[in-house]
Design a binder for these strands. Structure first.
Length: 275
DNA sequence: AGCGCCTACCGCCAGC
DNA sequence: AGGCTGGCGGTAGGCG
């Protein structure tokens, strides 16, 4: 652990779940470097860097969250690998570690046994992917279901993750939700969803509301907002581009959805949380 | 800020 | 009878 606790509390939670669930072999199984302000000092600590180099050598997997990539890179564990780190330090990272192929993709990157994530929330995805690799998709979903992810809102209130709160106990529509997330920018109208689910519109509406406690339209809106939220924090794409990518008809439509669900404008959301 | 069009939602009902 | 399905249409509210 190399960082001030508050920064990566959420991802640390899943990381611990990943470690706890991973098969115990001899030595280090998964070496994970979390990011945060402390990573600078850690990277300058020769004995710590040496320790990381040795452990990375015999660990089954190496991973980092956010700026944790700096410590891994300092130890040479990322040499010749593709890697991600937080967008605000990508340029500095690339300059400092030319042997690492930095990717600007907002989600996490896997290159063989090396996994790196761009930001804090994608660190959660990374940890869940580790669980999935070890124990299968069902286990990863189970961990996700019991993990409550809070993002702090401007008013100090908390907001559930749409993806997680939409997971019903029997996960009847899990496959559909995956499909929606992969087709956010395409036609996901009620008729399209019903077709995808293999039901009539009327039956689909009924079953969906029963299983998730939410109407299909509201659910789609939540998933779109969640995807946009992530891109706002973990990329530098202009708001307009993000609205297109997430399937909002226009920037204005996205702004209205943010007002409804989060009570902030997209710009404010980004300004408040990305730095 | 306002407005017209469109769609999602849902009550209702007939049929299986 | 009781439950489920799916078409219809009115309405509220979102979208452009």
């Amino acid at each position: 652990v190399t960082q001030d606790a508050g920064i990566v509390t959420a991802s640390a939670g899943v990381s611990l779940a990943a470690v706890a669930l991973s098969p115990i072999g001899s030595g280090v199984d998964t070496l994970m470097s979390a990011g945060g302000p402390g990573v600078e000092a850690a990277s300058a600590d020769a004995s710590l860097v040496g320790w990381v180099r040795r452990r990375a050598g015999d660990a089954r997997r190496v991973a980092s969250v956010c700026t944790g990539a700096f410590l891994l890179a300092a130890s040479g564990a990322l040499d010749g690998k593709r890697a991600a780190t937080h967008w605000s330090v990508c340029a500095e990272f690339a300059k400092r570690f030319p042997a690492v192929r930095v990717e600007f993709d907002p989600i996490f990157v896997r290159d063989g046994s090396v996994w790196t994530s761009a930001g804090v929330t994608s660190g959660i995805d990374l940890a869940l992917a580790l669980v999935e690799e070890d124990l299968g998709r069902a286990a990863a979903l189970a961990v996700a279901r019991y993990l409550v992810v809070f993002l702090k809102r401007p008013g100090g209130q908390a907001q559930f993750s749409a993806t997680l709160s939409l997971q019903a106990a029997d996960d009847k529509f899990g496959a559909l939700h995956d499909w929606i997330n992969q087709h956010l920018a395409e036609d996901i109208s009620l008729p399209a969803l019903a077709r995808q689910a293999g039901m009539s519109e009327r039956s689909f509406s009924r079953h969906y509301a029963d299983a998730t406690g939410m109407t299909p339209g509201r659910a789609v809106e939540q998933l779109r907002v969640e995807a946009a939220r992530r891109l706002l924090l973990e990329s530098r794409l202009p708001v307009k581009r993000i609205s297109q990518r997430c399937g909002f008809g226009s920037e204005e439509t996205m702004r209205r959805s943010f007002a409804r669900l989060l009570d902030v404008t997209p710009q404010d959301y980004r300004a408040r949380f990305s730095s």
